[in-house]
Simulated assay, not measured.
Amino acid sequence: MKANQFIIIGLGRFGSSIGQELIRLGHEVLGVDRDEEKVQELSKIFTHAIVADATEEEVLRSIGARNFDCGVVAIGDDVEASILATILLQELGVKKVVAKAVSELHGRVLERMGVDRIIYPERDMGIRVAHQLVSPNLLDYIELSKQYTIAELAVPQCLSGQSLEDVNPRGRFGCSIVAINKPKGIIIAPAANDVLAEKDVMVVIGTNEQIEQFQHSLNK
């Protein structure tokens, strides 16, 4: 996989977590923050980390922000700084701009600015945890859009030994099993004759309603 270059503005828990995972995946990361302590802490982990004010256009120009594949604005405690940094990344021509929103209003502003992706860490985690609490088979839940969801569902005992053809989630509920994670490895685009076992994890995609109906059928 080609290594991409990311610039992350704001090195709090959210920004530092994204940066560390990108480094682990083999990408290059430049971290930017006003806080010298945060920068020092991550300077040995990130490709580069610098103390700078990302709301200053000349600062972003001098560090070559326009040459990065993706800019992540992870500022969480200063909405004005978040918006300014986002505008500057867009104006400098960064290919893709992702921004953290701390409220619905902040998110609407970012949406009107044409940000490529808006992330609501606290809200999204709250939604995922709530779904996990009410469905014992749900391991993870990611909303792809207002209508579509991808979910990881543990195979219950009642489905163990059944093939995908037997379970037939597409015919019964309209959702599709796009992968099966087995202890020995993952099966991508499984065939109708692939058999489920109790310790397997199904990766399911469909509308929210379709997946809820499928989940409900597993709990009976």
Rank of each mutant, 00 (worst) to 15 (best):
Q215S: 15
E41W: 04
Q20G: 10
A52L: 03
L30I: 12
S16A: 01
G93H: 03
C175N: 07
L139S: 07
L153T: 01
I118T: 07
V98R: 02
A191T: 11
I180P: 01
P169I: 01
V204K: 03
H106K: 03
E143G: 03
E28V: 01
S217E: 11
I150M: 13
A81P: 12
G12E: 05
G171C: 05
I188A: 12
L89M: 02
E143Q: 15
D194V: 12
M125V: 14
E91K: 15
V98E: 07
E198D: 10
K182W: 06
I186P: 08
S135E: 08
K146E: 15
D200Y: 14
P169D: 13
S176C: 04
D116S: 08
V109T: 06
S176E: 09
G107D: 03
E58D: 15
E212Q: 14
V195C: 05
L153V: 01
K220Y: 07
Q147I: 09
M1Y: 11
V29G: 03
H131W: 06
I119C: 08
M202V: 04
V97R: 00
I8A: 02
R172L: 13
H27Q: 06
D140W: 01
L159M: 15
V97G: 10
R24C: 05
E57M: 14
Y141T: 07
I9Y: 08
N67Y: 11
S103C: 07
G64L: 02
V51N: 03
A151T: 00
L164T: 08
I142H: 14
P169K: 06
L11Y: 00
V29D: 04
S17I: 01
M202W: 07
L105Y: 11
A74Y: 08
V73S: 09
A81E: 10
R24V: 07
I63R: 00
L42Y: 03
T86W: 00
Q162G: 00
E80R: 14
H216Y: 04
I45F: 04
Y148M: 09
H48W: 02
K95F: 05
V195K: 08
E122P: 06
L153H: 13
G15S: 10
V134Y: 09
A65D: 11
H216S: 13
V155L: 13
V102H: 06
Q157P: 02
A179L: 11
G93N: 02
V102F: 01
E122Q: 14
L218A: 05
R128A: 15
P156T: 04
S82P: 10
L22T: 02
R24N: 12
Q215A: 14
L88Q: 10
F14D: 04
G93Q: 02
L60H: 04
I63M: 03
G71T: 10
G15H: 09
K199S: 13
V204D: 07
M1V: 11
E80T: 10
V79C: 04
E143V: 02
T55A: 08
Q40L: 14
K96R: 15
G76W: 00
R61S: 08
Q132K: 15
G161R: 12
K199N: 13
H131S: 08
G10R: 01
H216G: 04
F214P: 05
E209H: 12
G15W: 11
L164N: 07
E41N: 10
L133F: 07
A192L: 15
L139V: 13
N208L: 14
